[in-house]
């Protein structure tokens, strides 16, 4: 990929200073997104996915949260250095965001039209009438039937899937270059999920924007992403093309996740799971943060923290024992 990077996150660290101690929610995360591609960010609850996205938007509540380190280069501009006013121009206009809960991410006291128009009126120099027309056009683009009628309805009159479409219409109304989708389908049922993902894929082509898709659902990631970053305890532990990652995971955590997905062909007595829980963010273990749950962990893992290293072309993994994982995979392949 020789294209210019759209967004380049370097060594981002966001900490929350609470009374019980410092929570290192995001601790040295780096990735980049190119124009028009979808980067998937996957991980368990509490691994720092959402904090990463909120950091990019600079929506971390401060105090207690603070971006401690790193840079977020968006078209070459470091977002961490902008003031709130400059940031407001970027939010919604260049980078926009959709959220997990379509039920609560729309304001109940305004019509959907008002809310889509809000974004347009903030960023574009248009009259109310033109903004309304644009809102109707957006509703058409996101596949809402009878947009002229829907535009004057209140959120409670729409179903969950419809509301998520409205949210997408809102976030795309100013033609952003990057759309951050924070678990956009988690609250929807499976058929609606598929529709929303399909919609996002087609809008991505239509608008030519990049998407940062945050989810804990490996199926969703497989469906939409070009590349994937797997996060664990505030770090990216594996970073690769979606095909490489699914075909040949190089980190024990990713491997464990893949292994714990039920397969329709296999008739299993019980599901495999990664033992243990995500460590308490106030008290992460020394060394590799996955060492408490990793079957390959050695003394080295408990002392030194591995860095992301290129193990194959374009495939990065932060693990001391990629070789051991390969052995295990080979064994299982035979067995």
């Amino acid at each position: 990929m020789s294209k210019e990077k759209l967004i380049d996150v370097n060594d981002l660290a966001t900490y929350f200073h609470t009374e019980e101690g410092t929570v290192k929610a995001v601790d040295g995360v780096s990735f980049e997104i190119y124009p028009g591609e979808t980067l998937g960010i996957v991980g368990e609850s509490g691994c720092g996915k959402s904090v990463t996205s909120l950091s990019i938007m600079r929506l971390i509540e401060s105090p207690p949260g603070k971006i401690e380190n790193g840079e977020i280069l968006f078209n070459g501009k470091d977002l961490t250095k902008l003031n709130q006013k400059q940031m407001r121009k970027i939010r919604g206009n260049d980078i926009s965001m959709i959220f997990q809960e379509p039920m609560t991410s729309l304001n109940p006291v305004y019509t959907v039209g008002d809310q889509i128009m809000e974004a347009i009126l903030i960023h574009k120099d248009v009259s109310k009438k033109e903004a309304r027309q644009e809102a109707i056009d957006m509703l058409t683009k996101v596949g809402i039937p009878l947009p002229e009628q829907r535009v004057d309805e209140y959120p409670h009159q729409l179903s969950g899937g419809m509301r998520q479409r409205v949210m997408i219409a809102m976030s795309l109304s100013c033609d952003p270059q990057l759309l951050i989708a924070d678990e956009p389908t988690t609250a929807l049922d499976v058929t609606i999920q598929a529709q929303i993902l399909e919609l996002m894929n087609s809008l991505k082509r239509q608008f030519g924007m990049a998407i940062m898709m945050i989810t804990h659902d490996l199926g969703v990631i497989a469906e939409v992403s070009d590349r994937v970053a797997v996060m664990y305890a505030g770090k990216v532990v594996e970073y690769a093309d979606v095909k490489d990652l699914y075909g040949d995971p190089k980190h024990p955590y990713t491997w464990g996740l893949m292994y714990s997905i039920p397969h329709i062909e296999k008739d299993l007595e019980r599901l495999e799971a990664i033992p243990g829980n995500v460590p308490n963010p106030l008290n992460f273990p020394e060394g590799c943060k996955f060492n408490t749950r990793c079957q390959f962990a050695t003394d080295k893992c408990r002392v030194d923290e591995p860095e992301l290293e290129e193990v194959e072309e374009g495939h990065y993994s932060a693990c001391w024992h990629v070789d051991k994982l390969e052995e295990q995979k080979a064994k299982q392949g035979r067995g």
Binding site: I90, G92, E118
Partner: peptide, 22 residues
Amino acid sequence: EEEFVIAADALGAGDFRIIFKH
């Protein structure tokens, strides 16, 4: 803490607008 307030923030709305409108 409601998501629609965060969403308004994410759309680039200013404090004044968020307070009075949302």
